[in-house]
Design a protein around this nucleic acid. Structure first.
Lengths: 258, 258
DNA sequence: GCCGTAAGCAAACACTGTTAACTCCTGCGA
DNA sequence: TCGCAGGAGTTAACAGTGTTTGCTTACGGC
């Protein structure tokens, strides 16, 4: 089952080159902007020529997708770290001391997400910006898979939150039927991913959860994309009150520090 | 005060050409995608050559900005129409019949925004996609001005909603001070734009209003950018329950049809 | 030690935005 | 009505883009 990694040095240096290409491309993208990461610039930086890169990536777009996947994984790792550092945060911030661990984890991850986005706007654009794989539901698209892993990190915490501290939601039949069928399908996916525990989720809870995610995304995206500049010079404090509002919708009491 | 429009036919045909360029560029952008709207393609479509376009736009980017501004204005017009058709909607949809006019207007405009975005994804990307003017707070940037007019349409309705049906909010001093100062500045802008009536707005109301806008944006953007496809095949019904949630935060009772 | 294969390169193609120099036509002022 | 300035539009060219083709070279596995 384990993927055989026999490999003579041939494919070892090859893998190293692939990594270098991605590293250089990412650096250019971050430091000089999206459109500066041209094949010739990357190659030049590496002391080679553009067509050589085609030995490693079939097209510029594929390289781009690889960067997206990698970035997804990097941010997922950052968020996982924030989640696992929740206890430590509890010790530091008095605000969080009295709260259940899973609540603290959710808050820490949400904050880490915003902090990462604020610190890495170019990479946030790369991953969450307009150009979406669209109909590329290839399933084997590594960027899509990485995106799913990213989402799963949030979902896993939410499922634990619900298991430990369920909040009141409307009954299933209060939802529009057209939405209910979609949420049932998605719940089946969750069962697939997280086990039978998810089967007991009320559809209303999923509805609320998705809305929380939409709010978090909207908040961070508008900040990074400067769409809040018309009213706020620094979205940080506004993120705090918004986090409190999102928490409220999930039955969490979170009071931002003043 | 009225801008003198003397103009011999010289500048009349010039204006017509400018309009044609923008129309062709927009059509290409909508039908063939963002990157198909190249100068040569536009010129070819018009029976001329690319350098000729430089008589009308100093660069491709300026043409792009002009399209953004025009699109802002177009969508603003659509939303204004939806707002002004609120009474008619009240007569049609029983759900809205009993509600105050200003509430119906808000619902109609929000729905019209989503509908427009769903029907014009390319144009939505053009305006709300990642590439933001950034630090281009030129003030005389027509795209920025158009964006402000767009936002003002929402804000005007909100101000009337607040005047007629204020909802309970936290007192000003419950907000983090770092946020309060920004909201005070923004309130001053609102007073500038909408008159002294806005001066009485509690900061908490602005906080809630901004969050409602962030939610609406996040919802529509994630839909258009396909970021909801991992859980929803059609975001329409989810938009309804989200609209209800947003309304609730504004003290509005809106029950989506089942 | 050979040899096949992978790596990398130079040249070229079809594009892109943009500039310079030129021609032509036309609407305006006298 | 005429002459002409200036605007409109052209061709040619430059520097850049992603990508393909054919070639050489060097090295790792047999």
């Amino acid at each position: 089952m384990s993927t055989e990694v026999p490999v003579g040095r041939r494919e070892r240096v090859r893998a190293a080159t692939v990594d270098e290409i991605k590293a250089v491309a990412l650096r250019l993208l971050v430091e000089e902007g999206q459109e500066a990461a041209t094949l010739r610039a990357i190659a030049r930086e590496m002391g080679m020529t553009a067509p050589g890169l085609y030995r490693y990536f079939p097209s510029h777009e594929d390289l781009h997708k690889a960067l997206v996947a990698d970035t997804y994984d990097r941010i997922t790792a950052v968020l996982a770290q924030a989640r696992d550092g929740a206890e430590a945060a509890q010790a530091t911030e008095p605000m969080l001391a009295a709260k259940p661990l899973v609540v603290v984890q959710l808050v820490c991850v949400a904050k880490a997400f915003r902090d990462w986005a604020a610190a890495h706007p170019q990479e946030f654009r790369l991953v969450f910006g307009s150009p979406v794989p669209a109909l590329a539901q290839d399933a084997e698209d590594p960027a899509l898979a990485a995106g799913n892993r990213f989402g799963a990190l949030f979902t896993e915490i939410f499922l634990r939150l619900w298991a430990e501290y369920p909040f009141p939601v409307d009954p299933d039949d209060a939802l529009p039927e057209a939405l209910a069928v979609q949420l049932r399908d998605y719940r089946a996916v969750l069962v697939e991913l997280f086990g039978e525990g998810a089967a007991a989720l009320p559809l209303g809870a999923i509805d609320v959860y998705l809305r929380a995610w939409v709010q978090l995304y909207g908040l961070v995206a508008m900040d990074v994309f400067n769409h809040l500049h018309f009213c706020l010079s620094d979205a940080g404090p506004f993120f705090e009150t918004s986090l409190a509002a999102i928490g409220r919708s999930l039955g969490i009491v979170y009071v931002p520090e003043k």
